[in-house]
């Protein structure tokens, strides 16, 4: 049985904001199925009582000294922006016309 269907891949691509083509969907569905069937092997390990590891360094709540330092200037922060307007990042419309 396939671990993942073409429809599921299309749904995940939408969630991931990837406007994939029909040709990519065909190709990815098969490839992702092979990959997911392989990685699903982690389920063979009996690990009910095992705590998860998110991270190998046993540090929590790392804070720096509360000392002001310089940060990027507005110009530097905007220097790579595809579009900027009056010292701000300019984005395409986020609301429909009728909203």
């Amino acid at each position: 049985m396939a671990a993942i269907s073409r429809e599921e891949v299309a749904h995940l691509a939408r969630l991931s904001r990837l406007a994939v083509t029909e040709e990519e969907l065909d190709r990815f569905a098969g490839q992702l199925d092979v990959i997911l069937q392989s990685v699903a092997r982690v389920g063979e390990v009996a690990a009910e009582d095992i705590p998860p590891t998110s991270h190998s360094v046993p540090l929590t709540n790392v804070y720096r000294e509360d000392v002001p330092t310089t940060s990027l200037t507005q110009d530097a922060a905007l220097s790579g922006a595809p579009d900027a307007y009056e010292s701000r990042f300019r984005v395409p419309r986020i609301l429909d016309e009728e909203d």
């Binding site: 891949v9 995940l12 991931s16 990837l18 406007a19 990815f28 992702l32």
Partner: peptide, 18 residues
Amino acid sequence: REAGFGPEVKRRIIIGTY
């Protein structure tokens, strides 16, 4: 993202999202 990412990056983003 469709135009900017290559196939392996897209595959991994989709697997991770799953």
